[in-house]
Simulated scan of single mutants.
Amino acid sequence: MTGELRPSTRTRVALPARTVESRLIVVARAQRAEDYEPVLDVLIDAGIRSIELTLTTPGTFDRLPQLLARYDGAADLGVGTVTNSEDLARAVDAGARYLVTPITSTSFVQQATDAGVPIVPGGLTPTELFASWSAGASAVKVFPAGQVGPSYLKDLRGPFPDIVAVPSGGVDLAGAEAWLAAGAVAVSVGGPLLGDAFGGGDLGALRDRAEAFVAVCAR
């Protein structure tokens, strides 16, 4: 059939074991890269084991080697909001443990897979998600997850029983539990966990929120 999507014969690069075991990715979107450490210190001390550093945070690439040296023994640091092949290559060269993009791009999947780095491309429709999965993505990012809900993953599993999904966007504490129960390999969480931490908020309260998410994802 013309235009039919066929499963890729390309070897799929697995997500880092530590990320899969924790079932939780925290999306760290700061105003500047210099603000990362105080917040990441709290997150990792609270049990967070996978953090996505976003390229919408100025200076992320410059800061990444320092952050990897500081945290690599304790957490997987990925690079997210990748929207062009040049940034993808730069993230690979910088040592990102995985890559996340908000878009569906089979060329990004091929580029990352050829480099041996896990990639999680975003999508919402069945066609978008299956295109990335069949191209060899490590997992697919259901985004924005808040527009559909956990039952959507159960529906997707009908035609795509093997698809590995990570919901992202508007996932709160109750949502994390529900998405994981629906079969998500992990949940991607930003604002509901971080709150105002990057804006000078209470880091003690951040620790409490992080510990609550860790506990839910460990069930």
Rank of each mutant, 00 (worst) to 15 (best):
G3M: 06
T9W: 00
T11E: 15
T11A: 15
R12H: 12
A14H: 11
L15T: 09
L15M: 15
P16C: 07
T19H: 03
E21R: 14
R23F: 06
R23N: 10
L24S: 01
V26D: 05
V27N: 05
Q31P: 09
A33Q: 02
Y36M: 11
Y36P: 05
P38H: 03
L40E: 12
L40S: 08
V42E: 12
D45C: 04
D45M: 03
A46C: 07
G47F: 11
I48M: 04
S50N: 06
E52C: 11
L55S: 07
T56H: 03
T56A: 14
T57C: 04
P58K: 07
F61T: 09
D62W: 07
P65C: 04
P65I: 00
Q66Y: 12
L67M: 13
A69E: 15
R70T: 14
R70Q: 14
R70G: 01
D72E: 15
A74F: 13
A74C: 06
G78H: 03
V79Y: 00
G80E: 00
G80K: 02
N84G: 03
S85F: 09
D87C: 04
D87K: 02
A89E: 12
R90K: 14
A91R: 03
A91V: 09
A91W: 04
A94Y: 00
G95F: 01
G95L: 08
G95P: 05
R97V: 03
R97M: 12
R97K: 14
L99F: 05
L99C: 00
L99W: 01
V100W: 01
V100Q: 04
P102E: 05
P102F: 01
T106Q: 11
A112Y: 12
A112K: 08
G116F: 06
V117F: 08
V117R: 06
V120S: 04
P121K: 09
G123D: 07
E128G: 05
F130T: 12
S132Y: 07
W133V: 12
S134Y: 13
S134E: 13
A135D: 05
A135K: 01
G136I: 00
G136Q: 01
A139L: 01
K141Y: 08
K141P: 08
K141W: 07
V142L: 15
F143R: 05
G146W: 10
V148N: 13
G149R: 13
P150L: 10
Y152P: 02
L153W: 09
K154N: 13
K154M: 13
D155I: 15
D155Q: 15
R157H: 14
G158L: 13
P159I: 06
F160R: 08
P161M: 03
D162N: 10
V164F: 10
A165Y: 01
A165F: 10
P167A: 10
G169N: 14
G170K: 04
V171L: 03
V171H: 00
D172G: 13
A174C: 09
G175R: 06
A178P: 00
S188D: 14
S188M: 13
G190W: 06
G191H: 11
G191A: 15
L194K: 08
D196I: 02
D196F: 09
F198I: 13
F198K: 05
G199Y: 03
G201Q: 00
G204V: 11
A205T: 12
L206M: 11
L206E: 09
A210Y: 11
E211S: 12
E211R: 15
E211D: 02
A212Y: 01
F213I: 05
A215H: 09
C217D: 00
C217M: 01
